[in-house]
Design a protein around this nucleic acid. Structure first.
Lengths: 250, 250
DNA sequence: TTATTTTCAATCATAAACAATCATCTTCAT
DNA sequence: ATGAAGATGATTGTTTATGATTGAAAATAA
């Protein structure tokens, strides 16, 4: 049975039932466990399904949170440490830009009680900031439904009205040649603008982002300090030549 | 049974009944008590439900400001009717402005499925619009914590970038001499601007707003059509001389 | 209040599922 | 044929999920 055939069959079986066990695929295709595992990994890579322990689940385009929640569960602890450190950089009276995304969202609990002004384009962030009584400005712009980020020329325009002491940016890829990248060019533009309007910029990223690239470049590596956790010594060293990297240990 | 399946089943059971005992989940899934406990913990972590002693409860719906909740309970039914009528005025392809506030918030359920573009300065509105897949733009601006509205020059600036087919405005007072009024001058300015940039404007108000005034004037009465319910005949008549009033009957 | 029952979190051993690796077997161009 | 590239299935040690058990905490009854 061809790889492509198996992939089709797997997706078809998932259409019939939202969640299926790996073993079911093994039986349906007559292939080995290893092969099915590889298939599932590939299909997940192509966003065709979501792997779950013991099998796979259909991608649900339902709500905004799930995608965000699932991701944020993954490295919950590490991210929290990074976020705490990042928050500790903020001084009383600072004006900061907080980029949309899960990594920066984690910072908000650590901002409570600080006398600061925050500008953000993340709707989830607005909720969290407002609840904690933090002085908040919103960039405005078009609501990107799945990430609840504001983008487009409206966001850009809004953003241009401010300048920041510090900006905290989330990225999808960090690469020696391609710099900081993210999949959506619109979002990349926002991030780049925020960095340009900020005295100091910090990119917050867990180890999985290193040596990865996404479609749209945000900025060169030297435009921002990288805050991360436990990079391999070697990786850490090579990036340190080009930009500042702060490693947060658990 | 896979973890993912159990989680879905648990949430589904909770949809049917708001509060359920742990034992019910044990029976429904055939898993052990320990496993269900772990499931509930994880789901709570992801904000999908709330654990209570003996079981779990559905996560409460939208976080509305307490002040907002009280107000919206008051005339719940009447407001819904007004909102439904207001929504019915919107045509396919329209660009509309939806003012922050409970009255306009009520319109959103009736917008589902319409192909329209909405601009708003209400953060609560953004959440509701996004969930329903409605194309949404946000004005930007400073977050007024208690009402979750965006105000200030940032909001004004953002707003000026758009023009609307229709705008729907909430007010606190409607008065023959003082026109439409609201307590916060900042908000009044936003509302006035929205009205000016709109082809047609509608003020949505229940009967309690008539012959009342608040601190800041938004606009003269003739600038917008009033959508309301059961005004006393006499009041209705006097206002109809100056502006258009649409009365929605239960 | 005290006694009793229920529910809970924490821990443990077991079993299942996992990623990573390797040797084998294709396929296909040279 | 020969070698390179890709796919496959078995094997490895590791990670994760599970259900039973325990004593602590909370709800309920006396």
């Amino acid at each position: 049975m061809l790889t492509e055939e198996r992939h089709q069959l797997i997706l078809q079986l998932l259409q019939e039932k939202e969640v299926r066990k790996l073993q079911e695929f093994v039986e349906a295709t007559g292939s080995s466990e290893s092969t099915i595992r590889r298939d599932l990994s590939q299909l997940e890579e192509g966003k065709k399904l979501i792997r779950v322990h013991g099998g796979a689940s259909l991608v649900k385009q339902k709500r905004l949170e799930p995608s965000m929640t699932e991701k944020s569960l993954q490295y919950a602890e590490e991210k929290k440490h990074i976020a705490e450190y990042a928050a500790s950089l903020i001084r009383k009276g600072d004006c900061i830009y907080l980029d949309a995304g899960t990594t920066t969202l984690e910072m908000i609990p650590f901002l409570e009680g600080k006398e600061i002004t925050v500008v953000t384009n993340g709707m989830t962030h607005v909720d969290a900031l407002g609840e904690r009584g933090i002085q908040t400005f919103v960039t405005g712009g078009f609501l990107k439904a799945n990430t609840r980020a504001l983008i487009g020329q409206g966001a850009l325009h809004g953003l241009r009205q401010y300048s920041f002491d510090k900006s905290f940016i989330g990225v999808n890829g960090i690469h020696l040649d391609f710099g900081f990248t993210t999949p959506d060019p619109e979002e990349a533009l926002i991030k780049r603008t925020a960095i340009n309007q900020s005295q100091e910029s910090f990119v917050i990223a867990d180890q999985s982002k290193f040596n990865e690239t996404a479609f749209a470049q945000i900025a060169e590596l030297n435009k921002a300090v990288i805050i991360t956790n436990c990079v391999e010594e070697e990786v850490l060293h090579s990036y340190s030549k080009i930009t500042r990297v702060k490693e947060v240990r658990a």
